[in-house]
């Protein structure tokens, strides 16, 4: 399985140095992104899902430090590479869409020059690059791209700008597209449009997508595989059906239960997850979710749970699964 993966993240630990101590933002994160598949990362704020995306891109702030693990992309460890080699992958084999389409584009340069610049890896004439840019803009649904390509970002609405960002990211035909909450800043009607666009384009280009979102509905619609993150750890991962139909980690279950989109009947008492996400400062003992877990055992607060295999691709980190397996064995 691992030989087929385009991106393999193995045991990744990442700390942020802060004046009040080290924040362990990612702990022992392992994740596979197979070629031409859409992998979703879901989690709430503070779960480290965006940090993970930025780590793969190598766009972390200075105080971030990878303390262990490897990020293997197309057979090479990104973390061992010289910076220049790694940088040359960006905008070529790897590209990214950001959360805020308002700030992701350079406001003082035209869409045309930004879209031509992004193709700097390719040896083509300027007019060919321009034609490719126009074709891509048309593909993402910008009306009248021939004349609008000369426009500046502020002349486009938020939804249009996100389409332009997608066009730019996919123009270079990357092997892996990283999308960090691309629909969060958009209205629901636009969100649906953008998700469909991403899905269609992904099939056309055949690239893999790492889709980071807190929106369960968007992940369910778009992704083939899902990883659920909580407080810097991947607590459960599997195919989209594993996660949404047969969630095994208590956090995944609680999260799914909370989604108001799943509650059909009108109720005055919506389910919640009591408690707060724990601080990631200092060393943590036991399962990170144990304080909020409805079915926590004694050992949950002392012993860190191992990863249990539930199905072919379905894995979760929870002591309860260990208990079950003992009983069945």
């Amino acid at each position: 399985m691992s030989t087929l993966s385009l991106l393999e993240i193995r045991g990744l630990d990442l700390d942020f140095g802060t004046p009040s101590g080290r924040v362990h933002a990612l702990r022992n994160v392992s994740l596979d992104v197979p070629a031409a598949q859409v992998v979703g990362i879901v989690g709430e704020s503070g779960s480290g899902k965006s940090t993970l995306a930025y780590t793969v891109m190598g766009l972390l702030p200075e105080n971030a430090q990878v303390t262990a693990g490897a990020i293997v992309f197309e057979g090479r460890n990104l973390l061992d590479m010289p910076a220049s080699v790694r940088q040359s992958l960006l905008g070529d084999r790897l590209s990214m869409i950001f959360q805020d389409p308002m700030t992701a584009l350079n406001p003082v340069r035209s869409i045309e020059s930004q879209m031509i610049d992004i193709q700097h890896h390719e040896r083509r004439s300027r007019s060919e690059k321009r034609a490719a840019a126009i074709a891509m803009l048309r593909r993402v649904g910008i009306p009248d791209p021939d004349s609008r390509i000369g426009g500046f970002p502020h002349q486009f609405s938020g939804g249009m700008r996100q389409r332009i960002c997608i066009a730019m990211a996919l123009l270079v035909k990357p092997a892996l597209l990283i999308a960090d909450e691309p629909t969060t800043a958009l209205d629901a009607t636009l969100e649906v449009q953008i998700i469909h666009l991403l899905k269609d384009l992904q099939k056309e280009i055949g690239c893999a997508v790492l889709f980071v979102s807190h929106h369960l509905g968007a992940v369910a619609e778009l992704c083939d595989r899902v990883a659920v993150m909580y407080a810097g750890e991947v607590v459960e991962q599997g195919t989209v059906r594993d996660i949404f139909h047969n969630p095994r980690h208590p956090y995944t279950r609680a999260l799914l239960k909370c989604d108001p989109g799943r509650i059909r009947k009108s109720t005055r008492n919506l389910p919640t997850i009591p408690g707060e996400v724990p601080s990631l400062l200092g060393v943590k003992q036991g399962c990170i979710f144990s304080q909020r877990c409805p079915s926590a055992l004694d050992r949950c607060s002392q012993q860190s749970p191992a990863e249990y295999r539930i199905g072919l691709e379905h894995r979760a980190r929870c002591h309860l699964l260990g208990e079950e397996q003992k009983v069945s064995a």
């Binding site: 629901a188 998700i195 469909h196 929106h215 509905g217 619609e221 992704c223 799914l256």
Partner: peptide
């Protein structure tokens, strides 16, 4: 336009363009 948190949901969505 509400996305459905269910991968198998059959959506007869009325998408506005």
């Amino acid at each position: 336009a509400n996305t459905e948190p269910d991968p198998d949901a059959v959506l007869n969505r009325i998408e506005i363009t």
